[in-house]
Amino acid sequence: MDIIITGLLLGGTYALIAFGLNLQYGVARIMNLANGEMIVLGALAAFWIFVADAISPILTMLIVAPLSFFGNWLIYRFLLRPLVRRAKNQGQLEVDSILATFGMAFALVGIMVSIHGEYYTYSYLAEPFEILGETFALNRIVAFCFAVLIGAALWLWLYFTRTGMAVRAVSVSTEASGLVGINVPQLSAIAFALGGAVTTMGGTLISTFITLDASVGVVFTMKALIIIIMGGVGDIRGAIVAALILGLVETAVARLIDPGLTLAAAYAIFVLILLFRPQGLFGRKPS
């Protein structure tokens, strides 16, 4: 029971991160391999501000979100958009964006190492909290609640606003959306920026209960990718289920076998999914 609840709490934050990457990949068609570094940036900001001024990470999140939105918008507009324009086909864009976002990831890691090379250790709401007779750390619960809130707000935005609808249209077909008068480059930039902002907020939340350092970004990139592939690209419901599964499996492996094997477990899931259900858990089988 303890494992299940801890796993689900962890999965909630994972789902938020995967949501961010899904927006970027599904709409802007850029697989952002610097996604994990956005998480670490969020964590670094939370740590930095908390240590300096004892400001709550939840408040930090409100500062970080618009900054990250703007930063990611700049990245898309000035670094990725040129790649989209020069690509002759989807394959070339994919290779280019893989290399470019890897480059950004390394560059960000380099910069973050020079800002703070050690672990981002701080303690926020590390108090016991009781659910169903078992105790959990309050910070995990708070992080989970905020992840759900942000996710819900995004969902409402996607399904009940004009821009949200346009974003969903672009994710279905870039070409057709252009034909019905949607400004695809602008919306792609917005989706990319928003995805980045969501990811950074996820990073801030995670940092309240997991200690990060500058170099762990790639691990989170892999996790977010595993969730997206498991859930099916662009499938929000699938991503949520996949995130919860990943959270559960990681927690179970860490508690029952060895914490050192969580990554191996995540990767094992990834391999199994790729080999047996490459279309995702709920995806329809491609012809």
Partner: peptide, 17 residues
């Protein structure tokens, strides 16, 4: 030596762009 990762990143970007 602190900048080796940064150099890797810049190398990738130089290649792509």
């Amino acid at each position: 030596s602190n900048y080796s990762t940064l150099v890797l990143g810049i190398a990738f970007l130089v290649i792509v762009y």
